[in-house]
């Protein structure tokens, strides 16, 4: 499996560490209420199919990346920097 890092290009999966669903990017507001926070902290989907995940390019450039992929076929649809920065940085 190869993942295209927005900075480094297509790289082997071994360079990356997967964190799981990209929930951390959808953190509820401080006053969102118990239901929203309970859902954020404890409830997890386990989709068979399209899923957005956080991956860390650990032995590469050390960027956090959102990888949109199919958990059944492993097809990767999209990768982007998790902080939304469009500048790849130097």
């Amino acid at each position: 499996m190869r993942i295209t890092c927005p900075i480094c290009g297509a790289r082997d999966r071994r360079e990356f560490t997967v964190k799981g669903a990209a929930l951390a990017l959808e953190r509820p507001a401080r006053d969102a209420g118990d239901v929203a926070w309970d859902d954020y902290l404890h409830n997890r989907d386990n989709p068979a199919g399209r899923s957005a995940e956080l991956w860390y390019h650990e032995t590469g450039c050390a960027a956090w990346i959102v990888v949109v992929r199919d958990t059944v076929t492993h097809e990767v649809f999209e990768t982007r920097l998790a902080d939304g920065d469009t500048e790849a940085g130097s």
Binding site: C8, R11, R14, E15, E58, T59, G60, C61, A62
Partner: peptide, 9 residues
């Protein structure tokens, strides 16, 4: 490139 070399950064 930054990569792994025999599992080392």
């Amino acid at each position: 490139a930054r990569s792994e070399l025999a599992h080392m950064a």
